[in-house]
Design a protein around this nucleic acid. Structure first.
Lengths: 325, 325
DNA sequence: ATGAAAGCGCTAACAT
DNA sequence: ATGTTAGCGCTTTCAT
């Protein structure tokens, strides 16, 4: 294995000189620089960041602990964050919790062992243990995609509760009165639960009850959305609108309606959440709320890279009228 | 910051003893073990893996350098791999190349600086530089999702060329003769290009020409599939079947047909690639090929963890008849 | 069963 | 401008 010492020897200079040249920090002559670079090339030297980090602190590693990779939402956040991190010579390290707070704690502990610059997590719901080790670690913490709660340090995203409320408000303004809900596992996906809470609250304030709901125990998916709507309609056929826990679910509902010739939105209105691209190209564009997923990752990464002071950044969301509600 | 030395002092034992207890390696008394664990708890000690790795070699880090996160294919591979890696106390570190070989080289170099156990890459197409540093690094290399080429070390996936051929074969057996193609950027997505090559080859062998094709310069997406099919049909209306570069594109084509009342498959047959879940729940299930994405990640991770000898693992694929062709 | 000490490959003073 | 040296926080002989 080629080490810095070998490069120094090959170039006929001291180790610290090689280090200075490689990091382009401190002073050295043009000639020295060339000699060093030549040796680096010739030997195929790749600096050992493990050693570098140990010697200097600052690992330039950012840990992302996310609930799921299947859910495009987190893939988008990851993409936004890793883009900015790369541009700033940081590395993204990630792991997946499957929406399990205990697993999250274990993973956070494992990540902390790499002494990351920051840890990014989804939402505000963490175990006491997670909060404790995070606090003790002294590293930056970013909580993503939730603003309805108290931030540990940095928080970036939008309010799910407000998004749910806006969705309800939209359906009410459109004149829908017999409204149902099709959702997925609310225990695990607490952000979807918050949307639903905001949704119900707004309906309630308008004196309109939620007529019926269907909750699938598993993860959100197009399939579960389709079967969920089917069950809901079997039980309560006379709904005029359905709110889905997200676009995947809503898309499933849409497919159910297409397959069974249910006119949309005349006979039944559908409303989703997330504003996925696919919802823009269905025969009828999906009525939904576009969430700032990539931007959330980007802003989170920017704050970390800049070592910004603790703060909460609300990126908001945008209602897309679409043609299904 | 709590270090092993502080734990040792607090527990009244030597550093090496703490190390042994923590790694459960070597011998120590029951009493000592308890004293150490008590101190660890009390101080909230989290071992520093940076230091541990430097002292012992073996970083237990596995680098995944993938073309895209938007493409669910790679998210699936990532998920498969990270699951197995976690179970075996390894960490996944990843970065995204945007299908750019030069960027891949830079990223591989950056990852190598962390002295990973293995580097996983998509496909066989790499720059000379990438191959060189990979070889020099001495770490394991896994090339994913491609078998049509020469492996550097380990390779796991299926043959895109064979998948394309199987798709053509299926359409021919169904009796389609005026066949078109809608694809995305073939320069970047070389695996899609290989599928297309296999597809054409099989058509050619049967004496059936490819009537027309439409290639979008950008990435694959539902939107580009929809607009691509629209352009293709505007130019060549009398096609009886269309092969798409993947399911996202095919889904877009499907939506175009739904929106324009084109009967499927009577008037036009559609065939995709990947076997995404969403294609199972559309009003008509999509005819496509299911690829072993999660399994690819899993098997790759298993081989790395087991430090298996160099080999090529063909996970095959499965044709799904569906109802669109 | 346990401790002392020598590194692992770098960086960061501190000299010169 | 450049070299010397003392760590960074562990793991790993090697003694005891």
């Amino acid at each position: 294995m080629v080490t810095l010492a070998k490069v120094a020897e090959a170039a006929g200079v001291g180790e610290s000189t090689v280090s200075r040249v490689l990091r382009n920090h401190g002073s050295f002559s043009r000639k020295t620089r060339e000699r060093v670079m030549e040796a680096v090339e010739r030997l195929g030297y790749v600096p050992n960041r493990i050693a570098g980090t140990l010697a200097s602190a600052g690992s330039r590693l950012v840990a992302l602990v996310i609930p799921s990779l299947t859910n495009i939402v987190f893939a988008d956040v990851l993409r936004g964050a890793s883009g900015i991190l790369e541009e700033n010579q940081h590395q993204a390290v990630f792991s997946v919790t499957d929406y399990d707070p205990e697993k999250e704690e274990a993973l956070v502990a494992a990540m902390l062992a790499w002494r990351p610059t920051a840890v990014m997590l989804a939402g505000f719901e963490h175990t006491e243990g997670t909060v404790k080790i995070l606090r003790a670690s002294g590293c930056r913490v970013v909580e993503l995609l939730d603003l309805d709660g108290t931030a540990l340090d940095l928080a970036v995203g939008f309010s799910d509760r407000a998004a749910g409320a806006a969705s309800a408000d939209f359906l009410l303004r459109r004149g829908y009165r017999r409204i149902g809900y099709v959702g997925h596992d609310p225990e695990r996906d607490t952000r979807a639960a918050k949307r639903f809470a905001g949704f119900r609250e707004t309906l309630g304030a308008a004196g309109i009850p939620l007529v019926d709901r269907e909750n699938h125990a598993g993860a959100s998916s197009v399939e579960n959305g389709r079967s969920g709507l089917e069950r809901l309609l079997a039980r309560t056929p006379d709904l005029d609108a359905v709110y889905f826990s997200n676009d995947d679910m809503a898309l499933g509902g849409y497919f159910h309606c297409l397959a069974h010739g249910i006119p949309i939105p005349a006979r039944l209105a559908l409303f989703g959440h997330n504003g996925l691209d696919i919802g823009r190209v269905t025969p009828q564009p999906l009525s939904t709320i576009r969430t700032p997923r990539v931007a959330t990752g980007q802003v989170a990464a920017e704050l970390v890279v800049a070592d910004a002071p603790s703060q909460v950044v609300d990126l908001g969301f945008e209602l897309i009228e679409g043609a299904t509600a």
